[in-house]
């Protein structure tokens, strides 16, 4: 699904990723943990196409060079990033945005675009599963949303789009324990043999609910250690410095 090979990235001449390699197969859930400044968000940004980085190394997505794809093409081909800090977009109605996004992706895949009624039915159902207040759909996108609402809105988008490969960038930060469970449940519902996840986090607690297949520790821009769930538990006890 996603194959990252010896990835280097610099921003303003500062090296952030230093030869990162990671292979994610269909259906696998990988967690990347790491201290502040280890390059976690940079990894997520680069994978989803954010500009401004000087990049070398190879990343293939479904056996194609990921860097040949424009930002929106990555989305069309099933790559999804749940943002660490979802942006507030004044004047843009949440429901309208979700519909535009979903239909842009459907259209690019040759599927019929949903009309307002069809869309509303689906979005209401998904929102209620995430225990989101329906009223949020009529508000401006993320404007005045609480931290938890913003993150849930990202998961709502993920569950509408049903991506092949979802990257969650610190989706757990700022969530209370109830919201954390709901978000984890949102991820678990989507888990299947084809769909892969890359979950970026500081803490073990989200992983307690999601149970990844692999856990990697990112230090100074490369994977310092890989393992399974026990590695996350160990980290929680001893911290990153001991590694």
């Amino acid at each position: 699904m996603l194959n990252i090979d010896n990835l280097y990235a610099k921003i303003d001449k500062k090296a952030i990723l230093n030869g990162l390699s990671l292979k994610i197969k269909p259906g696998e859930v990988h967690a990347v943990m790491g201290p502040n400044g280890s390059g976690k968000s940079t990894l997520a940004n680069i994978l989803s196409g954010k500009q401004g980085y000087e990049i070398s190394g190879n990343v293939s997505y479904e056996n194609k060079n990921l860097f040949d794809l424009a930002i929106e093409e990555r989305a069309h081909k099933g790559l999804f990033l749940a943002f660490q800090y979802p942006l507030e977009i004044p004047g843009v109605n949440t429901s309208n945005f979700l519909k535009t996004s979903l239909n842009a992706i459907r259209k690019s895949n040759g599927k019929k675009e949903l009309d307002a009624l069809e869309f509303l039915k689906i979005v209401k159902e998904k929102a209620s599963k995430l225990k989101m207040d329906e009223k949020i759909l009529n508000r401006q996108l993320n404007v005045g949303f609480s931290g938890g609402e913003k993150k849930k809105n990202e998961i709502l988008q993920m569950s509408l789009i049903e991506p092949k490969m979802a990257i969650l960038d610190e989706t757990d930060s700022g969530l209370d324990i109830d919201a954390l469970k709901i978000v984890a449940n949102g991820v678990n519902t989507l888990r299947n043999k084809e769909r892969s996840f890359l979950i970026i986090t500081h803490y073990q607690r989200l992983l307690d609910y999601i149970k990844p297949d692999f856990v990697h520790v990112l230090m100074k821009g490369k994977i310092a250690k890989s393992g399974c769930m026990e590695l996350a538990e160990e980290l929680e006890k001893v911290g990153y410095e001991k590694l």
């Binding site: 929106e72 945005f97 996004s101 992706i105 789009i161």
Partner: peptide
């Protein structure tokens, strides 16, 4: 970037 990452 946010909007484009959603397929627009």
């Amino acid at each position: 970037f946010y909007l484009m990452s959603r397929g627009l």
